[in-house]
Design a protein around this nucleic acid. Sequence first.
DNA 1: CGCCGGGTTGACACTCATCAACTCTCGTGG
DNA 2: CCACGAGAGTTGATGAGTGTCAACCCGGCG
Lengths: 264, 264
Amino acid sequence: MTQSHSIQGPTCEHCALSRNCTEKAEQLANKQNNPVLTHKIYHKGDKLYCAGDAFNALYIVRSGSAKASISSMDAEEQIVDFCFPGDLVGTDGFAQLQHAQTVTFLETSSVCYISLHSVNALLANSEQGRQQLLGNMSRSLLMQQQQTMSYHCMTSAQRVAGFLLDLSARLAKRGLSSNQLTLSMTRIDIANYLGMAIETISRLLTTMQQQGLIQVQRRQVTLLDIPQLQALSRFEVEENDPLFMQSNTALLHANSYTSQAMIQ
Amino acid sequence: MTQSHSIQGPTCEHCALSRNCTEKAEQLANKQNNPVLTHKIYHKGDKLYCAGDAFNALYIVRSGSAKASISSMDAEEQIVDFCFPGDLVGTDGFAQLQHAQTVTFLETSSVCYISLHSVNALLANSEQGRQQLLGNMSRSLLMQQQQTMSYHCMTSAQRVAGFLLDLSARLAKRGLSSNQLTLSMTRIDIANYLGMAIETISRLLTTMQQQGLIQVQRRQVTLLDIPQLQALSRFEVEENDPLFMQSNTALLHANSYTSQAMIQ
DNA sequence: CGCCGGGTTGACACTCATCAACTCTCGTGG
DNA sequence: CCACGAGAGTTGATGAGTGTCAACCCGGCG
């Protein structure tokens, strides 16, 4: 949710993808006379790459969605990011020249990929290219750090509200409705990503629905009162709120992290 | 603790700093005939840069230590990293071309800096340079993500043990004793970084001392039983351990995240 | 039709944050 | 030189938040 960022620019008609991406990749393809830009379709459950796989390209999601996860040897996975159209993925490979994350598609999706060769050329030749890639990676780190902060300072309710707003904003940036969400991930994925139990997610969604903040129907979520959700996520709530039963002092120290800040 | 990583290479005699750094920076200085590499001394409490400051250089810590923190507008700071000799800092600036973090020194320290101009030249001209910078940033993100995982899957005791082992390993990499730590940060900083209350830190250190795992005397910490600490951090503990009073099922699901994995 | 995975709801317990009171160390100024 | 004060750190009591367990519902697919 927080690390992958669409490269700036309006979407193109072909793939609801950043124009920059397409242009630049095709530019490179021409220059070097080889097919650096390819599209490929994946289905739900398919993996773009796994931890340990050779690192030989970066990818941009064209449509659909995916989750990026890491795992400690024996143990469970930890979802560290959700990826949507326009998001750049694969930069985890620079660390060890092999991928550290596993990227799994949540639904039928397509991605284009940019070979490492092209990436290198881009970095060597284009000031703008350098800025874009470094900016993207830097932003990913900052987002992840804000995520860290949110774990420390926000309650479960705040994190769920922030999550929904974050999704909303990311979809809105891609021209989709900002208050009608279709979650492509399960509750389990959300719980894993937010670091809480699925039961907690479930309860909070129910409570928010009772509050009239959202409407939930399976994977369909409608944001009914975005301002109130923002207030909730940044903690401007009046007392006696069912979502914050008797929470008191803990909240006074909470950060006013807003999902807005996470997005761009 | 997790994001900044020393550039590979043995330390040089001048500054206990990665040789790569010195060589490369001086190389650049010569090539471009201008002083890209400068050293500067800072004192406890001084700031290397603040959030919002113009981004015009990367820095490498030569000696001393610092903390990197972010803050949401009105609210508290969140420490996202501790920096030690050899660590590269400042890459948070690529995102917005201004710094997002604030870097504050914990003691008298010296840093050398590499102007953005030099960084650009490095990226344009050196395959190895590109690899180093991108690898460093990628590694930072992965470390931060593992940090995230640890919040979700580990108990406070595990995180504190992991923190100590992490410190130990980082210092060992710099040629210092691996079981004699002098914490340059306050308990408050540690608590902030690990996302727990200072009282909890205090209690856990005391308990570990009673267990014979460590010896604590103000900022001086001696690791007495590193294997046991590792077992603790990755969760191989027998039941009835005071550190895990009656914890039971929670632990079965815990990740075997090891501090080792965090370090390099 | 029946199963199975996803999702919901309720009861309970445990970890850890909070509050409060106290000690220790160090630096400053009388 | 000692007194004072402030900040850092420790220890204990208490409760809130949320994870865990268990039971259940629901919808889709073979």
